[in-house]
């Protein structure tokens, strides 16, 4: 055999059988995230919508982008970007969330309004 992926579906019907359930799952998640956005969950609205986005992304990456195939090189390459993102978010928030409050307003105010004196109010 050629090793070109004999486990892949070879017929039109087989291809739709493999892809349509994934699409149906994505549509269900889309409706769920839309409904979830209107529920009164406070700060957990964001957690819910991003959680559903991650679930959608997992469906697309595993089934449509073929990471379900046991190819370690591609799986590693796909994870490399995420590892970098994890470092970037962690280090950035380690700075932003621990910065002294008075340094916040003056540095990040939009320039369309005059600078306000640092009032010492907490950003969080």
């Amino acid at each position: 055999m050629t090793g070109l992926g004999e486990e892949r579906p070879a017929s039109t019907a087989g291809i739709w059988r493999a892809t349509l359930p994934v699409w149906a799952g994505l549509m269900v998640l889309l409706v769920a995230t839309l409904v979830g956005a209107y529920l009164e969950l406070g700060r957990f609205n964001l957690v819910l919508s991003l959680g559903i986005a991650v679930a959608k992304a997992a469906l697309v990456v595993v089934f449509f982008m073929q990471l379900k195939r046991p190819d370690p090189l591609l799986r590693l390459a796909a994870c490399a970007g995420l590892v970098f993102l994890a470092f970037m978010f962690t280090l950035t928030y380690a700075d932003v969330l621990t910065r002294a409050p008075p340094t916040q307003p003056g540095t990040v105010m939009p320039r369309s309004i005059p600078d306000r004196p640092a009032a010492g109010q907490r950003a969080f």
Partner: peptide, 24 residues
């Protein structure tokens, strides 16, 4: 919804090409 559906047809197109199914 449009983009998610386009991903479905794109996945089917890629699989179809690998399987040699020209029409699909």
């Amino acid at each position: 919804a449009l983009l998610l559906t386009s991903s479905l047809t794109m996945a089917a197109a890629a699989e179809g090409a690998a399987a040699g199914l020209r029409r699909l």
